[in-house]
Amino acid sequence: MVRLENVKKNYASRCVLDIPQLQLTPGRRYALIGPNGSGKSTLLRLLAGTLLPDEGSIHIPDVCRQSVGYLPQKPYAYGFSVLKNVCIALSKNQSSADERAKRALDEVGMASLLHARGGTLSGGEAQRMAFARMLVQERSLLLLDEPTSATDIAGTQLVEEALLRYYKKTGCTLLFATHALAQAERLADEIILLDHGRILEFGPTAEVLYQSENEQARAFLNFWQLEKPITSN
């Protein structure tokens, strides 16, 4: 179980994250929602280990720590081909690396761009390529920072479908940040609503989205109206 206790993170003198306690159950899907600057990316970075907390502790089981996958908000596309960009996520010894990479790229609709240079991709294409790079690795904890923020509707659908297939196959713990509440509703079992670095709400998706009694949370959720009619989980 991934556990955070009294975790605080400051940038300069500004406290951007203050989480007294948070537990993530293995095999569950969590969506991180909240306005800009609410601490979503910081929380993901802390879990990924690219940032260290100023206070508190983060417990990630050893088995999990070895296989944490993290997709940053602006993933880097290396200058070589799209295929090689995906292959670098696999070790050289892994057999049929090319085949696995091609399959992953096909899943996100990038099969026609195998030999395009990473630097020539659009923002959405680069994001899908980086997502394919995640798919070729088997991870037990997957951290995605707005994985579809730059993709079009078709691309978003492909990424979501691929993500669900990956989740069913690996049974990983999934934590993703998003601004699309409808996406959170489609993909997540539970929602963590952050504001000013603090957790406003944490619970099952439907409860947070439709039954929250927290005034601040309600204000946020009403402001960010859902993109589609309410459906039960």
Binding site: R45, A48, G49, T50, S67, V68, G69, Y70, L71, P72, K74, P75, Y76, Y78, G79, F80, I88, A89, A130, R133, M134, Q137, L143
Partner: peptide, 23 residues
């Protein structure tokens, strides 16, 4: 940007350096 991406993929420090030099 490269460091974050590389860490997310679990690349070794040697490979991170190699790709940074390449880029």
């Amino acid at each position: 940007l490269m460091r974050e991406t590389a860490l997310g993929m679990g690349l070794s420090k040697g490979r991170q350096l190699l790709y940074t030099l390449y880029e």
